[in-house]
């Protein structure tokens, strides 16, 4: 019988990925020229990099905990938390090193052009925006926002992976592990691309006016993930 709870949790994972992408400050090609606030890469790219790093951590932790035969609720929390933390580490390291490049390699202070004052530190922003640009670097508010994005993305990816593995219930089945891994990757890409179409290129974080578009992404990711989840359950059930 199709387990409703599994489908709900996989869908929720997909939604978390979609929302997480909105938190990650990316400036696309302009940011690579220090012409926009955020990390100088594409939305999907950074979100996928962070989320898949989280997936690697979660896969490792799941194997570690579930191989003993019992998988408790606490273990579940451990695995998804591990995925979230792995993803957060990747994104914070990337943003921090990116910041070093902006400050020491390009010589511009981190600043947001969308707000007058940084909502977290209270620093004045607009005076530090150089002429003809829309901000540069990763100011604290964007950094914190990116960390939250990593958390949600990693959480969502790991939830999908764990749910799929739980259907099979056999962590030593290498076919199931690989299938769940690639399947989680596929669902991750679908949701993060949908979210990036919603953003349309660049976003600075949760203080950006574009962040108000989140509800649309939630609806889209809900529908897409639900469909994927309904399909996923018979696949994983058919493996063993």
């Amino acid at each position: 019988m199709i387990d409703i709870m599994t489908i709900i949790l996989i869908t929720l994972g997909g939604i978390l990925i979609g929302v997480g992408v909105h938190f990650i400050p990316v400036g696309g090609a302009p940011a690579a020229m220090a012409q926009a606030t955020g990390v100088g890469t594409g939305t999907v790219q950074l979100a996928a990099g962070a989320g898949l790093t989280g997936l690697i951590s979660a896969g490792f932790m799941y194997n570690h905990l579930a191989i003993s035969g019992t998988f408790t609720g606490l273990d579940y929390l451990m695995v998804v938390a591990s995925g979230a933390v792995g993803s957060m580490i990747m994104i914070t390291v990337t943003m921090f090193v990116g910041q070093l490049v902006y400050v020491y390699g390009v010589g511009v202070p981190p600043v947001s052009a969308k707000v007058k004052k940084d909502p977290i530190t209270g620093d004045v922003q607009d005076l530090y925006v150089s002429r003809g640009t829309e901000g540069h670097g990763v100011p604290t508010v964007s950094f914190v926002s990116g960390t939250i994005g990593g958390l949600l993305g990693g959480l969502g990816g790991s939830m999908i992976y764990v749910q799929l593995m739980q259907i099979v219930g056999d962590p030593s089945n290498s076919g199931a592990v690989a299938l769940a891994g690639i399947f989680a990757t596929g669902v991750f890409y679908v949701n993060s691309v949908l979210a990036s179409y919603n953003i349309g290129g660049t976003i600075e974080g949760f203080h950006d006016p574009k962040f108000k578009r989140v509800p649309k992404a939630i609806v889209s990711c809900l529908i897409a993930s639900l469909l994927c989840a309904i399909i996923a359950v018979p696949i994983m059930g058919g493996v063993v």
């Binding site: 594409g42 999907v44 990757t185 596929g186 991750f188 691309v193 179409y197 290129g201 996923a232 018979p234």
Partner: peptide, 21 residues
């Protein structure tokens, strides 16, 4: 509004789900 690669990745994301199903 975003790079060409994204549309390829979403296609294969959908594709892998559909293929295995």
């Amino acid at each position: 509004g975003t790079g060409v690669p994204s549309i390829g990745m979403v296609a294969l994301g959908m594709g892998i789900v559909a293929t295995m199903f």
